[in-house]
Amino acid sequence: MLEVCNVSKDYGPFHAVRDLSFTAAAGEIVGFLGPNGAGKTTTMRLITGYLPPTRGEVKVDGLVVRTNALEAKRRIGYLPEVPPVYPELTVNEYLNFCARLRRVPSRQRQDAVARACQRTALNDVRHRVIGHLSKGFRQRVGIAQAILHEPQLLVLDEPTAGLDPRQILETRQLIRELAGQHTVIISTHILSEAAATCERVVIINRGALVAVDSPENLTHRLKSTDTIELQVRGPQPAITALLGAIEGVLKAEFSHLRQEVGTWQLEVANAGVREEVARRIVGSGWGLLELRPIDLSLEEIFLSLTANQPEGQVEAPPPAADAEKGVQL
């Protein structure tokens, strides 16, 4: 459905995207993952024909976007990072305009707008001016605009950015519903986002491809061991000693104590060890309050992936990942 073949985009001496190749099959949801400034938005713009690539080709449904722009663009729905809405128009007026731009035949236009509003739950605000709507609604108007003409390829640039948790869940649900009928490309810098919706993840850094795999495989491939976090009420040295003695526990580390509850981090050889850990703690009469596996964060996956890369592909440690952590603090 979508083929990105050795695409590069230069801005003068700056290489925003370099020699990027990946594909997406029909009906697949592909997550496009990378830290801020990795070239995600640029790649989305190259796919949708907003920018021409400096080298390489993007093909949608076999059509080269650069040379067969009109036909290729008909097959694409695109939600840019900022929803491209006109604040002075009502939702209905705006979607009608988009339907005209997308060359939806006039007889089907009303149906197309109604269907898009239905799917994005916009019916209640159809006759309100977009400028008066909340960020979440505007984002949905942006999605409605992208799915209006039933495109074969749907490109969503950070569709959940800036939404509240409930809206994020609704948007993810919507995206899952859209899959199957559309090939969906979603860019995000949050791994859990990709894990929640995508079948396959493309990770890029500094404009270059780092990895392509399913989210499960990525986390799996990267950790030879599992990490679990444990909260226990009880005497700290005794617990540490006990944990260290359990077979299969490679490393037991006490992390901190809060209100008489200690937190430990364990590295275990396999998931089965968790049962043994629970049994032994409860058997010793201590209070087991929490036991949970810790997934690798994007930062960790990202760091471990880029650390294994040969020289030249990544020239410097990724400052963006650190910066992102800094923002979250």
Partner: peptide
Amino acid sequence: ELLKTAPI
């Protein structure tokens, strides 16, 4: 972005 990615 809307205008430039539309099939016009």
